[in-house]
Design a binder for these strands. Structure first.
Lengths: 245, 245
DNA sequence: TCACACATCTGGTCTATACCAATGAGGTGA
DNA sequence: TCACCTCATTGGTATAGACCAGATGTGTGA
């Protein structure tokens, strides 16, 4: 719902920003979801690129538009509703929201876990894990980069499986593992380095980091996911009336 | 833990940003948590204010520093760990983290709920609620602006109570109400209008909106909070092994 | 027909300068 | 002693112009 309350905005920041907002809302701007070039926009609104970019950044932070590194500005679609407590796989979750998801495997290797990960997974520093990096799209748009760290002892032969599909299903079907308790953490951060590169956004773009530690039905720690979301693409929702799915 | 994984950053953005990062880390910069003026910093690093501000914005998004509208840049403290499922009151929650909280009442009036709020509270559009606006500080810093919408029929005389204290305690002690189910939603947004003004941040600063609908032990809807957080001040954490406190 | 090199456009970054408005410190007067 | 006013400083915003590097499209040559 993105509760609009209390946003009457005394000082509308700038006419420019509002002009663009209106033009966006009424479809006068985006052609096929992509905005005209910054130079063209600056000219059209009679301002300089710097000022124009200031206004676009505001709209970006507000989740109305987003940037693809060196490609341009695009109009954001509605947010994907995401509940980190759900054990539904990504495909099904998006399907239930009438949206289409796809997953791309970036790499799957054995690697030493960073100290922070080892601590979360309650192992000694320097422990090796299967490190699976993937990225996901919703309706064609790249929205999240995920790094999984899996216990090597639990998932001995996982590299031989299809890792572009659902890990949830794999756990259940191949290893007869059901999810149990979950711990997760949500942090607003700046996307940099690999997450930024993989999501095709410029270094320093605002994003949401979700770290999750999954256990099985017996309480054994299975893995840890670190997700980096484009901030305008997601809305976290949790309802305690729903049982964990 | 703010998992540092995957942030090796191929291209370190700019020397400037890294210089400031290092100077911050080693205490060469912030005097009493406030950075020198932008003009002084620009001169010190041999650059212009615009470029300097770009770098500062990156650090701001990364949660290292924050801005107070027209006052300057300040060094961020550690994030407050926040679990929207806890029913602990704010005071106790902060105390458990060795931090000190304070709450200021901004207003408490009867007001028509915005459509989005009425929908969440499952009432007809145009329904009146008690609207309580408050802001909270942690260790002296303004970190969150909260707007409560309370059922007028449940809390008939709440305006006569002390509204700068804990509503949780008030519910329990005055109305013998215990919390039951909760629904909440977390959205990364730009802070504008009243939330921005009350938090003393400039219009368009990045923030976290948390909308929460509380029910009592019988399932009756009690109220709805809309919280606007300074993004660098909070880390959301949920662990299903903890029972709801 | 297809792969590759090149020219062009676009965003990313930067310099230099300027004015406005809010803030806050200091001084003034009651 | 305290309220008020003044003014220097600071952040917020803007103009104008420039260069670089990645992305894209085009045309050439095999």
């Amino acid at each position: 719902m993105a509760a609009g309350s209390t946003n009457e905005t005394t000082k509308p920041s700038s006419k420019l920003e509002h002009g663009i907002r209106a033009d966006l809302a009424e479809g006068r701007l985006a052609v096929d979801r992509r905005l005209p070039s910054e130079r063209e926009l600056a000219e059209r609104y009679g301002t300089t690129r710097i000022t124009l970019r200031e206004a676009l950044s505001h709209l970006e932070m507000d989740g109305l538009i987003y940037r693809e590194n060196r490609k341009g500005w695009f109009v954001s679609d509605r947010r994907l509703v995401y509940n980190p407590l759900w054990r539904t796989d990504f495909q099904r979750m998006t399907r239930e929201q009438q949206r289409q998801a796809s997953t791309e495997l970036i790499e799957a290797v054995s690697a030493v876990g960073p100290d922070a990960i080892c601590e979360l997974l309650e192992t000694l520093p320097g422990t090796e894990f299967w490190r699976i990096r993937r990225r996901r799209r919703v309706d064609g748009r790249l929205v999240v980069f995920v790094e999984h760290h899996l216990s090597k002892s639990v998932f001995t032969d996982i590299l031989e499986q299809d890792l572009a599909g659902s890990l949830t299903s794999l756990y259940r079907e191949r290893y007869a593992i059901e999810y149990g308790d979950v711990f997760f953490e949500i942090n607003p951060i700046a996307l940099t380095g690999m997450p930024a590169a993989e999501l095709h956004c410029s270094d320093g773009t605002f994003g949401l980091q979700i770290v999750r530690v999954n256990r099985d039905q017996t309480g054994r720690i299975l893995d840890c996911d670190v997700e980096y979301w484009r901030h305008d693409a997601v809305s976290i929702r949790i309802d305690t009336r729903e049982s964990v799915r």
